[in-house]
């Protein structure tokens, strides 16, 4: 009960902070929009090729926009030494980590919904809306993977002078399996032949999420205490 109560209190506080400061979400949404516009200019996206390009473009936008936002949520703990509230409390490091993963996941999912709607409007690709219930599962699993890895490394990098620069270098190589799983599952949902199932890639996402979660739970305490 204490674990759940503490986790919920931190998530509630993070959402309130974001609602007031609008830092993480506004940065993520702005960057996602910017990246979509850049893709629109750089790649000749037409109604014939939008289906084959959508999954790749979307997941690249999710990864790059997401990492910026996750850096912000760990910074809120560092400002004014606020993390000391957590250290001198009944909150376990595991509970603190899980709470941060959940907060980041919520912000990521909000950004992803916005990105998908922007994609539909920019590229006139309504299939994304129609397939959204099926897309929700790889989105959730992939975002969870991003959040698990990103939360860990955002705390590691905020302790460094070049934190915001280092973070993508640490984050992106590790989320490659999540990216591959997410892109492949999304592609099958959007373009797969009848009967083709994204289940194999969803399993890959589940395995990597669990693996990263297990490793991160061990490492997080050391990172925060350092």
């Amino acid at each position: 009960m204490r674990f759940a109560g503490n986790t919920l209190a931190i998530v509630r506080k993070d959402i309130l902070l974001e609602f007031r400061g609008k830092e993480a979400l506004s940065i993520m949404i702005f960057l996602s929009l910017l990246l979509l516009v850049i893709f629109n200019l750089a790649v000749d996206i037409q109604s014939e090729n939008v289906a084959s390009l959508a999954s790749g473009i979307l997941w690249v936008v999710f990864a790059f926009s997401g990492i910026l936002g996750m850096g912000k949520t760990s910074l809120s703990e560092r400002d004014d030494g606020a993390y000391l509230n957590i250290l001198f409390s009944t909150v376990s490091m595991e509970s603190f980590y899980i709470a941060k993963v959940i907060s980041n996941l919520i912000f990521l999912l909000l950004m992803e919904v916005f990105t998908i709607l922007s994609f539909v409007i920019l590229f006139n690709y309504e299939r994304l809306i129609r397939t959204f219930p099926a897309l929700a599962i790889p989105l959730l699993l992939g975002s969870l993977g991003f959040s698990i890895v990103g939360t860990l490394f955002s705390f590691l990098s905020t302790g460094s002078r070049f934190g915001e620069i280092i973070l993508p270098f640490l984050f992106l190589p590790l989320v490659v399996p999540v990216l591959i799983g997410g892109v492949s599952a999304t592609d099958i949902i959007l373009n797969g032949s009848p009967g083709e199932s994204p289940a194999k890639w969803l399993k890959v996402l589940v395995v990597f999420d669990l693996l990263y979660l297990f490793i991160s739970l061990i490492l997080f305490r050391h990172i925060v205490e350092e």
Partner: peptide, 14 residues
């Protein structure tokens, strides 16, 4: 333990 260092450990937006 209650520890208070030079910083106030407060969330400015709250």
């Amino acid at each position: 333990i209650f520890y208070l260092g030079h910083r106030n450990s407060l969330y400015g937006e709250l």
